[in-house]
Design a protein around this nucleic acid. Structure first.
Lengths: 335, 335
DNA sequence: TTGTATGCGTTATCAG
DNA sequence: CTGATAACGCATACAA
């Protein structure tokens, strides 16, 4: 009941040409006379023929597909990134096969394998969680292993290795700048709130620490659970009240705002709060959160652009690391 | 430099058996002696052999892949749904290929075609936007067309047709109940806010209208842009002030909350607001929004469950429409 | 239990 | 410009 798929022989038969000719027409070869091309094209159109992608894949060893590995889509940053990547890739005729790995190493490894087994043309890793902490290399060995089979591009994270390309935000310098701004406005007890030890988080932390310590203050990094209410509680439990908070993501920042509100603090007079990712959460909050925009669409665009350069093997010399700068979007939680 | 992919002949050669035997081992056939199985397995393990999925696909005409079509991932409901679907599908060894279609018919049609051309085993449509408005059938003809080639499952929407299966939330009845609750608490000017004419939106609207009109009040449906600030402005422009708002999604509800706050209304005393989807936006807001939970994980789980029944062609009789009930999660914007 | 031969639908090489 | 024909890697019916 599902033998309706016409193949190249059917088309050749109807059009009275060989399969080679049909193939040439389908693939837009210029070595076909206009008349035969038109004839074949008409048949294809009439019967609605589509080449079998499996057979194409078998011969060419590619299905014009890229694998996207993401820890979860249940996070606005990730889902936006995947959304952007998919759109850009489609512009070039590439489809994407998606896999959610979770944050555990075992999951990352196994899902990475699965993706690789699908003969993807390149692998995209979304999120700095794939970069490990930047110190322990065993946590990223599977990535270098993968890179032996297919080019690997990391969005918002950096892993060194052959055939591995990274696009990262300049987290360190924005956070440094923003923190310096807070200090300049008289803040003396600024907290840095994060939920992870990822590459990206560590970069933000470093920017924060440099600014704070450069001003002769002491850094105060607090690790919290990435949950609004948990953050609120953690802050409420603190002994001395902060007058500034830099959060590693907007979700945490929302928790911080809720803490400040419930503590009766006036924002941004008593306390300034800055989020990260400039997601819809920042706008949903009341007051609306000033958040650092890490330019997800641009970074995704650039990534795909570089992927295509790589795939097409044009002369373009690809650098292994691309840095994109971020900036603070000023709203109601900072002055 | 990339001829390293071993094939079944290589394995057969090393193990000193025929390719048929290797194939049997790989596919777990029971017609292989334990000794040869062990021998082959060891070779496979040693050299790290993986069957070529294209060749498998060519013969079997399947790559154990399902296509997921979604308007956008830049929406918490959609991204959560895709996240859930992907996880469930992977449990059964199915990978998913993702496509974002946008909300325009042309995009839906073309992306649907692309997915189909990849020889997916089944197609999942996420979101009621694919159900059109439930009236104009031309807007869903491409779905019926697709269903001729592969089973189609719709998450949170309904389209009638052969080989099309739908899972929907009982939006009508929850909204009816919730609205009745507001009326019972003395609300007399309840607004229904929506941004679309989708199947789902229309169902919610109907539930609202029935409750309101059943109580002798007049329905007041306002179409707004799905943007927090736009919603806020639309409400501010209204001539008479509502004392209750039912929003078709949490984003709109956030806008409603911002309106109420800026208008100096006390929530939930002066006005009650209920959102939809029970997303993180509802929690980010201050006050936190009471929101209708449409049980995305369950609906996704059920959908995949039914897909597997369908694919395995077991005796299970699949109903074309599965209804899942929703419920209100009580927070700070309702009494 | 194991091996042999064939088909799956393309692309590509090589004659004509 | 066009047509045979050989890969591509695997599953499977058929033989042994």
């Amino acid at each position: 009941m599902k033998k309706d798929a016409l193949n190249i022989y059917d088309i050749a038969g109807i059009a009275n040409v060989s399969i080679a000719t049909v193939s040439r027409v389908v693939n837009g070869s210029d070595k076909v006379s206009e008349s035969t091309r038109a004839k074949v094209l008409k048949v294809i159109e009439d019967v609605g023929y589509t080449p079998n992608v499996f057979a194409q894949g078998l011969g060419l060893n590619t299905m014009h597909t890229v694998g996207i590995l993401v820890p979860t889509l249940d996070d606005h940053y990730m889902s936006t990134a995947v959304d952007c990547l998919e759109k850009e890739l489609k512009r070039y005729g590439y489809d994407c096969i998606l896999s959610c790995s979770g944050f555990e190493l075992s999951g990352k490894q196994s899902k990475c394998e699965m993706l690789l087994s699908k003969h993807i043309d390149t692998l995209i890793l979304v999120g700095s969680t794939y970069a490990g902490n930047g110190i322990d290399t065993f946590a990223t060995d599977y990535i270098r292993e993968a890179a032996k089979k297919v080019p690997v591009f990391i969005v918002n994270g950096n892993v060194s290795g052959d055939n591995i390309y990274a696009s990262v935000c300049d987290d360190e310098s924005v956070v440094n700048d923003v923190t310096a701004g807070l200090i300049g406005r008289g803040r003396r007890n600024i907290l840095f709130l994060t939920d992870s030890h990822s590459y990206s988080s560590n970069k933000k932390k470093k920017g924060y620490e440099e600014a704070v310590e450069g001003a002769g203050l002491t850094a105060n990094v607090v690790y919290v659970e990435n949950d609004i209410h948990a953050v609120k509680k953690s802050l409420a439990d603190l002994k001395d009240r902060p007058d500034g908070i830099i959060a590693a993501n907007d979700n945490i920042a929302v928790g911080a705002v809720k803490y400040a509100v419930s503590a009766g603090l006036s924002i941004p007079d008593d306390i300034e709060i800055v989020g990260y990712n400039n997601s819809i959460l920042a706008i949903s909050s009341t007051p609306e959160i000033s958040s650092i925009d890490n330019h997800t669409p641009e970074i995704c665009h650039d990534t795909v652009e570089r992927i295509m350069h790589n795939l097409n093997d044009d002369g373009y010399r690809l650098s292994n690391k691309l840095m994109i700068s971020c900036n603070l979007i000023q709203r109601e939680t900072t002055k």
